[in-house]
């Protein structure tokens, strides 16, 4: 029984992470990510004051301790952060490449006009 719950949980974590990672940079995905981050921060803060409550939620999910639940959440947010940062980096790199290429081609003498 426990193993089934665990498999479902792992699958859910992967699906959610992928959805968040693939989300791209449009406003709605950004908003969803920010809301999830807020929820995660509040839960993490609450867990400091009410560790038993989180442990009860974790026990219900078959995870064991509340801290583990927070840990899993942290891992997911780390992945999402890595993926979005990477995407943003790629966009910036693309823009920079196009700009540099434009400068390079404009500065050089045109082909066909060579002696």
């Amino acid at each position: 029984m426990l193993i089934i719950v665990q498999i479902i949980l792992v699958a859910a974590v992967m699906v959610v992470s992928l959805a968040l990672m693939r989300g791209g940079s449009n406003a709605r995905h950004l908003a969803v990510r920010r809301i999830l981050l807020m929820i995660f921060a509040v839960v993490a803060a609450l867990s400091v004051f009410f560790p038993e409550a989180l442990t009860r939620v974790a026990g219900f999910l078959g995870i064991g301790r509340g801290t583990d639940l927070v840990l899993y959440g942290a891992v997911v947010s780390l992945f999402v952060f890595m993926a979005t940062t990477y995407q943003r980096f790629r966009h910036a790199e693309n823009a920079l490449t196009k700009l540099s290429r434009r400068i390079a081609i404009d500065e050089a003498e045109k082909p066909g006009q060579l002696s």
């Binding site: 490449t97 290429r101 390079a104 500065e107 050089a108």
Partner: peptide, 21 residues
């Protein structure tokens, strides 16, 4: 004819620049 990238971008970028030029 030298087409000069202002910064180092990588071989793929250079190839594309050469083709476009």
């Amino acid at each position: 004819v030298v087409v000069q990238h202002p910064i180092n971008l990588g071989q793929g970028a250079a190839l594309q620049t050469g083709i476009e030029f």
